[in-house]
Nucleic acid binder design. Structure first.
Length: 480
RNA sequence: CGGGGCGUGGCGCAGCCCGGUAGCGCACCGCGUUUGGGACGCGGGGGUCGUGGGUUCAAAUCCCUCCGCCCCGACCA
């Protein structure tokens, strides 16, 4: 049955998204600050779960955390030609402070390559100082024309890794390590979101990078969302900021740097990949609360019996399950069912007088709304059963998203097929065009070259636009 | 930045055309009855009608100004 206040996806996908954000109580518009949102506790808890999973992987691959200033001298931004062109239009500036006009304005960081580059130039002297592997968790600001909660906000939270290496090979290895071991591993395993790993085209790469790698995911409306990026910056920033080291042969060399990031936009991806017309659907491994218990009773005698049973049942859960008992007395069970569905809690346990009598509980799966996902199970062995169910749900969400992506990815041979394919999903095709050709497709079809997958076919084919033979296959799609 | 829409209790809206006591639903507070899929009754609180100006005996309503927000595009994580 349709949820009150949630526009069905089929009616208006964009409105559905906004309804989920509001309905699940994840964010509030920061109405007084253009394009910004308040991350409410429910939404912020998801970010904390993302942070925790990523931070572990970042550290496990040898990186450490640090923190750099929010404000960057404006001149820093100007030092890398492509970089300034890419970011200048959307930076906010601080021109006054302490009641006086500043000699040099600061920009509020849109990303930190420049300020970090400045310090790295000071810190790096010898080949022995390399690699330098630092990550920072921070907020950044980009004055975007059009904003949407989580997906694109003027201020957003992210992590940005910035590393320095002695050789191009080392920098490339780092860029790919992050893509595979940190980002793809996290997004696929924890968020249950299948991704296509690949390279960005020159047109789409990060402003100032040599090469950008990215993870692309498909949302339920068939559009692409870039879930993560990892950039090999070459020597561009090393030259702009004079990051040099003395090698084993006593020769001064420019270093090679990388940068990589994941942002609160992932919360938007999470919503759009898994949720349904009943509300948010959270993958169990990421869900701040995995199990909610709703006690049901009619009178005081039943109440004490049921609550005692709940106490007994949940006693063994500590350390095994993240759970919550909804013992609010002023709301009906039906209201609670709807509320927790809206908030995406993976499993709901109902404990009523009938269950107490039978030493059973009712278990409802969020990924299978309605009767299909509801069953009565014995209290004995419940903890293990719930853990197994959570694993099953996690897998189910991943499989479902992957099937959806496969079903909506079309191999296209010519322009007419490309046009049709990007209306509903990904178009996979051979490509030998230029940046100008990409621009033309963007103008005509509103689709962009999302990614050049790392997995490439053995055989050659004809470019969807030019007809030239090529071995390079790419994904075109409309994107968020 | 171009195109469109909207500003009225916390939220969603009606009222405006045709000027005359600011209203409805939800939410909120109190009491009581309820509770296995969004409970019900009774009582109650809360609004500079976005801003500034003008017309008028009288403006939420008519005229002008400014501001803000949302949606659709181009730009972007």
């Amino acid at each position: 049955m349709p949820k009150e206040g949630i526009t069905p996806r089929a009616t208006d996908y964009s409105q559905w998204y906004l309804d989920i954000v509001r309905g699940a109580d994840m964010a509030d518009y920061a109405e007084v600050v253009r394009g910004c949102i308040v991350f409410k506790p429910t939404g912020y808890a998801i970010w904390e779960a993302i942070q925790s999973g990523l931070d572990q992987r970042i550290k496990a691959t040898g990186h450490v955390n640090a923190y750099f200033p929010l404000l960057i001298p404006k001149s820093f931004l100007m030092k890398e030609a492509e970089h300034v062109q890419g970011f200048a239009p959307e930076v906010a500036e601080v021109t006054r402070a302490g009641g006086e006009e500043l000699a040099e304005p600061y920009v509020i960081r849109p990303t930190s390559e420049t300020i970090i580059g400045y310090f790295y130039a000071k810190w790096v002297r010898s080949w022995r100082d390399l690699p330098l592997l630092i990550n920072q968790w921070a907020n950044v600001m980009r004055w975007e024309m059009r904003t949407r909660p989580f997906l694109r906000t003027a201020e957003f939270l992210w992590q940005e890794g910035h590393t320095v290496h002695a050789t191009e090979e080392d920098a490339e290895r780092e860029t790919l390590l992050i893509l595979h071991e940190v980002y793809a591993d996290f997004v696929e395993r924890e968020m249950a979101l299948p991704v296509i790993k690949g390279l960005k085209s020159d047109k789409e790469k990060f402003a100032g990078a040599l090469r950008s790698y990215a993870l692309e995911a498909m949302m339920q409306d068939g559009r692409a969302l870039q879930a993560a990026t990892s950039h090999n910056l070459g020597q561009n920033f090393a030259q702009a900021f004079n990051i040099t080291y003395t090698d084993q042969n006593n020769t001064v060399q420019y270093a090679w740097t990388t940068s990589w990031g994941i942002s609160t936009r992932l919360i938007g991806a999470l919503i759009m990949a898994h949720s349904d017309d009943e509300g948010l659907v959270l993958p169990p491994r990421l869900a701040p609360t995995q199990v909610v218990v709703v006690p049901i009773y009619k009178n005081e005698a039943e109440r004490s019996a049921v609550l005692a049973a709940v106490e007994r049942i949940t006693a063994g859960w500590q350390g095994h399950l993240r759970f919550k008992v909804d013992d609010r007395d002023n709301l009906t069970p039906g209201f609670k069912f709807n509320e927790w569905e809206l908030k995406g809690i993976p499993l709901r346990i109902e404990v009523g007088p009938k269950d107490v009598q039978k030493d059973a509980v009712a278990v409802a799966r969020r990924d299978m709304p309605g009767k299909a996902g509801k069953q009565i199970v014995p209290q004995a062995g419940l903890t293990e059963r719930l853990q197994a169910l959570l694993d099953e749900i996690q897998q189910q969400l991943y499989d479902r998203a992957l099937q959806f992506r496969e079903a909506n990815t079309h191999d296209v041979q010519d322009y007419a097929q490309l046009r049709t394919a990007v209306e509903t999903g990904f178009a996979r095709c051979y490509w030998d065009g230029t940046s100008e050709d990409e621009q033309r497709i963007q103008n005509e079809l509103k689709a962009t070259l999302r990614v050049i997958p790392l997995d490439q076919p053995e055989t050659a084919g004809r470019c969807v636009l030019t007809g030239r033979e090529t071995t390079r296959q790419v994904i075109f799609a409309r994107a968020y």
